[in-house]
Measured scan of single mutants.
Amino acid sequence: VCQVIAMYDYAANNEDELSFSKGQLINVMNKDDPDWWQGEINGVTGLFPSNYVKM
């Protein structure tokens, strides 16, 4: 598990995705897919595009 910072706002398009705002910290749970990582914010988990965040 690592933390990343959102570089942009992201609004989920599907129920399994994670919405976040620019500057939010996201706990990364899974990086099996290079493009879509699984993350957690405040107890909510979902997929998000890895190119929207930085380490």
Rank of each mutant, 00 (worst) to 15 (best):
C2M: 06
K54N: 08
L25K: 09
Y52S: 09
M29F: 10
A11H: 15
W37P: 02
Q38L: 09
V53Q: 02
P34I: 09
S21C: 10
N13S: 14
G23V: 01
K54S: 10
A6Y: 00
L18S: 01
D16I: 15
D35G: 12
K54V: 05
P34D: 13
P49M: 08
A12K: 13
S19R: 04
N27M: 12
D35A: 11
S19E: 04
V53W: 00
S21G: 11
Q24N: 10
Q3L: 06
A12M: 06
D32V: 09
P34Q: 15
V4R: 03
D35L: 12
G43V: 02
E15K: 10
L47D: 05
D16S: 13
N30E: 10
D9A: 14
W36L: 12
V53E: 02
M29L: 13
E17F: 07
Q24P: 02
M55V: 07
W36P: 00
Q24T: 12
P34N: 15
N27C: 10
A12W: 02
K54R: 15
V44N: 10
L18A: 02
G39I: 00
Y52K: 15
D33S: 11
S21Q: 06
D33K: 06
N42E: 14
I41A: 14
I41C: 05
C2F: 14
S50C: 05
V53H: 03
A6H: 00
K31W: 06
Q24W: 11
I26E: 01
V4C: 06
A12Y: 03
N42A: 13
P49F: 03
T45P: 08
D9Q: 06
N30M: 12
E40Q: 07
N27W: 06
N13F: 07
D33V: 07
V28T: 04
D32A: 11
F48I: 08
Q3F: 15
V1K: 15
N27D: 05
Y10F: 08
S19N: 10
F20I: 05
F20M: 03
I26T: 01
I26A: 00
K54C: 06
A11Q: 13
A6K: 00
N42Y: 08
Q3N: 05
V44D: 06
G43M: 08
N13L: 14
S21Y: 06
D9S: 09
Q24E: 13
K22E: 11
Q38A: 13
E40L: 05
G23C: 03
G39D: 02
W36A: 07
M7Y: 11
P49K: 12
D33Y: 06
M7K: 06
W36I: 05
Q3I: 13
D33P: 03
L25C: 08
Q3D: 04
C2E: 03
M55Q: 07
N30Q: 14
I41K: 07
I5R: 05
F20G: 00
A12V: 03
N30S: 12
S21P: 11
Y8S: 14
Q38S: 10
L25A: 07
W36F: 15
E15L: 09
N42I: 04
Y8A: 13
V4W: 08
V28A: 03
Y8D: 04
A11V: 09
K54M: 05
T45E: 10
G39T: 01
Y8H: 05
G39E: 01
S19M: 04
Q24Y: 05
L47R: 13
D35R: 12
